[in-house]
Design a protein around this nucleic acid. Structure first.
Lengths: 195, 195, 195, 195
DNA sequence: CATGAATGAGCATTCATTCAT
DNA sequence: GATGAATGAATGCTCATTCAT
C-alpha cells in the first residue's frame, strides 16, 4: 500500500528537520567551515548524498538552519504582539531571553560565530536586522515610557549588555548565576518582582 | 660574506610581524578555518613556503597572533599596576577599552570568534583566563569599595556589558556612539567626569 | 534504488585490490617514498581522492600491500602443515621458493627495500618475524635430522644463501640460471632428485 | 696572512668529505628520498646553501658517496692484485668481507637499497658492474682451480650466499655469529685454517 | 667560502558535490 | 527516496634549489 502524497511530504519534512538539527549541533560546536558534510551525514545516520536531496548546497543548509532558528525565536519570544513592554513583561522578557538561550544554545552559538565572519554575516544579515530593530525599538520605547533621559543610549547600552550576557551565558553556562543576575537587573532598573 | 646574525634576526623579526599582521586581518575578516595559507601569502606578497620558514604550522601562526594580541593588550591596558581602580581611573579605564578595541579591532574580532569554537577555544584558554580573572577581580574590588551590595554579581553584569559593548562596537563600529555611551555609563555609576 | 550492500562490498573489494596491485608495482619499481599517490591514481585510472576512500593514508596502503603479500605467501608456501621437511619436500621447497619469487617478484622487491629503511622496517617487522622464525626452525630441524653438526649455523648460512639467491634473482632475473642452481644445491646437500 | 691555494683545496676536500659522511649515514638510515638536504646540513653543522657549493644537486651528492664507497672498497679489498685467490687468501677474503661490511655498514645498506630501485639503480650500475664481474671471475677461477665441477654455478651460488650473508649482517648485525659462520664456511669448503 | 631567506613545484590529504544504480 | 563510489579542486605542508649579502 503506497503512501499518500501527504505522508511523503511528512517524511520529507521530518528528515529535513533531522538533518538541520544534526548540522546545527555540529556547526555550533566546531564551526561551519570545520564541519564536513560527511560528518553531518554520519551523525544523522544517513548517506552523504541524501543531504543533497534536501539541500542544494552546504550553504543552503546553513541558511535553512538560520531561518529555522529565527522563526523559532519569533514564535517563542512573545512580546504580546503589540511590542509594548510593561513592567511585568520586562521581567518576563528577561526570563524569556535566558530560557530561549537555553533551548537554542547551539543556534545562538552559531549565530554569534557567523556574525563575526564578514563573508558569512551577509547571508544572515536580513534576518538579524529585523530582530535587532524590533528589540531596540521595544527597549527604547520602554525606557522612554519610564522617562529615562537618553532613552536611545540607554537602549543601546542595555541591548549591548544583553548581548554580553548572552555571549557569556553561551560560552560558560555553568559559571553564570542566571537568577542572581536577573534579580540584580530588576533591582537596578527599579522593577518590582511579579512573584 | 653572509649577513651577521643580527641582520638575519632583524629580517626575521620584521617579516614575522608582517605575516602575523596580514594573517590577523584575514583571520578576523573571514575566520581562521576559512582563510587558506595561500591567501595570507598572496596578501603578504610572499610565497606560501616562506610562512613555514617562520611558523611550524597554521595553528602555530594563530597562537602567535593571539600571544601578540594579549601582550599588546597587557602593555596598553595599564591599570596603574596596583590593579586598584579609582574613580578617575574608571573613566580612563572605559576610554582605554574603546581605544584598544579600535587599535586591535581585528584581534578582538578573531578573539570572539575563536572563543565560540570549542575545538579552538582551548588553544587560547590560558591567555584568556589570566585576562578574565584580572578584569573581574579589579571590577569586583571597585564595586566593593563603592559599597555596592552584591559586588560580585555587579561585577559579572558589568563585565558582561563590557563584552556586549565590545562585540557590538567591533561588529558595527559606525553605528556605535562611543562617547555617548561612556558618558551614560559614568552617570549611571555616579562617577564625576574628570574633565 | 541503491545497490545492495553486497554489490557495494563487491565493488569495494575489486577496486581495493586493483589499487593495491597498481601501488605494489610502482612501490617496487621506484620505492615507496619516490612514488606519489598521484602516480598510483593515474596508473590505476582513478582519481587521487578515491584512494583515500579505500585507505586512510599512504602508509595504510603500504601495510595493506604487505599484509596481502605475506598472506599470499603463507597460502602458497605449503610445507605440508607439519612444518617438517622431508628430502622430497626439500626439493619441492626450493622450487616453491623460486616460483613464489616469480609470482610475487614485486612484493619481494618491495619487501627487501623496506627492510633496509629503519624508519619503515618496523611497520612490517611483525609479519617478517613470523615468517623468519618459521623458516629457520624448519631448516634447523631439517639439518638436525640429517645429522649435520652445527645445524643452527648451517641453517643460518643456508637461510642467508636463500636471501642472497632471492635478492639476486629479483634484481637480475634473466642472468640467473634457476634450474642449474637448484640442481647444484640438491647435489651439494646430497639430496636425490625425485623426478 | 691568507691561506695558500693548497690550504684552501685541503679545506674544501675536508668539508666535502664531511658532508658526504653525514649524508651517507642519513641516506642509509632513512633512505635517499626520505632524507632532506636540510637535515644533512643540520647534522653536518653547516648551512643548506653550502652543500650546493660543493655539489650540483642532491643526486650528485649521492653519486659522490657511491664513488667514495666503491673506491674505499677497492682500496681495502686487496686480493694481492693478481686477482687469484689462494686457500690462505680465501680465509682472509671472508674475514675481509665482514670487516669491510663493518667499516662500511652504512654504505652497504645504502648500496642495497639503491639497487632495489630501478630509477636509481642505473646511476650506480657502472660501478657495480666492475665490482660484480671482478668478484665472480675471481670466485669462478678459485673453484676451477679446486676442480669443482660447474665452477660457474658454484661461483654464482657462493656469490649469492655472500650477498645474503652481507644483507643479513647489515640488517641484523647483533643476531649474526660472524666467526661461527666463517668457520663453518671454511670447513664446508675444505679449507684449512691458517691460524 | 658561507649564510639563511626566499621560491615554487610537488606532495599527502580533505571535502563539497555528482551520479549511476 | 537513498546509497556510497567517484571526482577534482583546494588545502596544509615539504623540500630541492637559488641568490643577495
Amino acid at each position: 500500500m503506497p503512501r499518500t502524497p501527504e505522508q511523503y511530504e511528512q517524511i520529507r519534512k521530518g528528515k529535513k528537520l533531522h538533518i538541520c538539527e544534526t548540522a546545527l549541533e555540529l556547526f555550533a560546536q566546531n564551526g561551519y567551515h570545520a564541519t564536513p558534510i560527511s560528518q553531518i551525514a554520519k551523525e544523522a545516520n544517513i548517506s552523504k548524498g541524501l543531504i543533497y536531496n534536501y539541500f542544494e548546497s552546504k550553504e543552503e543548509l546553513l541558511t535553512n538552519i538560520i531561518d529555522n532558528g529565527f522563526n523559532e525565536l519569533i514564535d517563542n519570544f512573545d512580546l504580546n504582539k503589540d511590542n509594548i513592554l510593561t513592567d511585568e513583561e520586562f521581567e518576563f522578557f528577561l526570563h524569556s531571553m535566558f530560557k530561549i538561550l537555553d533551548s537554542q544554545r547551539s543556534f545562538w552559538k552559531l549565530y554569534f560565530s557567523l556574525m563575526l565572519q564578514s563573508s558569512i554575516a551577509q547571508i544572515i544579515e536580513p534576518k538579524v536586522k529585523v530582530w535587532y530593530d524590533m528589540l531596540t525599538s521595544v527597549l527604547e520605547d520602554f525606557f522612554k515610557r519610564r522617562n529615562v533621559k537618553n532613552a536611545r543610549t540607554e537602549a543601546l547600552t542595555f541591548g549591548a549588555m544583553l548581548d554580553g550576557l548572552s555571549l557569556d551565558y553561551i560560552i560558560y553556562p555553568n559559571m553564570f548565576p542566571v537568577d542572581d543576575i536577573i534579580n540584580h537587573l530588576l533591582e537596578k532598573y527599579n522593577i518590582h518582582k511579579k512573584s
